[in-house]
């Protein structure tokens, strides 16, 4: 993610092209680049997925543990997020260099997943023990920051699809928990309610998705939305330093729902074809 420095002339060229719905790599404003998805690659995790785009690569791994629930939410499970940018992406991220980006990412994930219906499936014994899924996101390569959020959300959703939790048998009298030894006695999670993130970037007079580094360098600002599979916008956040008008945003919202639904379908299809 080396900071790309563009001259005014290049920025001008880019912006004029986008105003005519023509980006420098030939896409239209609402076209996304190809995404490669792979699941079940890490044997040490109960669920894992890897996403590769042109210059962005993310691995998500899910680990589980049994913990007592939050006192205020006794019937809901827990999901914890942890993200890290490897120094592989850029020497800037050596050690704790990537903390700025990572902290924002993790907090948005936690906000979006706070009221997810998935948490209800994670209860084992209400009030006593629930599943806690620890999701680790490892960012190996970054292109533009805006597309990073989208790809991380796809990786996490795919990793959750891949998650195999053992079926837990609860003895009704003693409330003892038994976990079977059979590796095939598992339950899978229903990922239909899990949100995906869509980032739209304002360049010139239009909004685009999946910007390249050059496009991001000439952009004003980005908006990040968390959308579930019904098209409802759950959370939103503004990234970057520029200021935006309200009216274009209102026109934007139906388009975002469409894009999000496409993403949901894409993930479901890919995962199904990979597991079959």
């Amino acid at each position: 993610m080396a900071e790309v420095k563009l001259s005014e002339g290049e920025k001008c060229y880019l912006i004029h092209g986008i105003n005519d719905n023509f980006r420098i790599d030939g896409r239209s404003c609402w076209d996304r680049r190809e995404i490669d998805l792979e699941i079940n690659l890490l044997p040490s995790c109960v669920g894992s997925a890897q996403i590769r785009s042109v210059n962005c690569s993310v691995i998500a791994g899910v680990k589980m543990s049994l913990v007592p629930p939050d006192p205020g939410r006794p019937g809901k499970g827990k999901i914890e997020f942890f993200a890290d940018i490897s120094a592989n992406a850029d020497p800037l991220f050596e050690g704790r260099g990537g903390q700025g980006i990572v902290v924002e990412l993790v907090s948005f994930f936690e906000d979006s997943y706070k009221d997810c219906s998935l948490l209800d499936c994670l209860t084992v014994v209400e009030g006593k023990s629930v599943w806690c899924l620890s999701i680790d996101i490892l960012i190996l390569e970054i292109g533009s920051k805006a597309s990073l959020y989208d790809l991380c959300s796809i990786a996490v959703k795919a990793a959750l699809y891949d998650t195999r939790l053992p079926k837990v048998y609860v003895n009704p009298d003693t409330m003892d928990i038994e976990i079977p030894d059979d590796p095939f006695d598992i339950m899978r999670l229903d990922i239909s309610q899990i949100p995906v993130f869509v980032t739209v970037t304002r360049i010139g007079n239009s909004y685009i998705i999946d910007p390249t580094q050059e496009e991001e360098a000439s952009s004003i600002s980005s908006l990040l939305f968390s959308v579930n599979n019904c098209g409802t916008l759950l959370h939103s956040k503004k990234l970057g330093l520029g200021s935006l008008h309200c009216d274009p945003i209102k026109e934007l919202i139906p388009k975002i729902s469409v894009v999000a639904l496409e993403l949901h379908d894409f993930i479901e299809d890919q995962c199904k074809s990979l597991t079959s």
Binding site: G61, S86, A87, E94, L138
Partner: peptide, 18 residues
Amino acid sequence: CKFRLSTFSKSTRRNLHR
């Protein structure tokens, strides 16, 4: 040269930076 074990690399989850 910097070596790092990622958090999910081993069967128990590790969260140590250095």
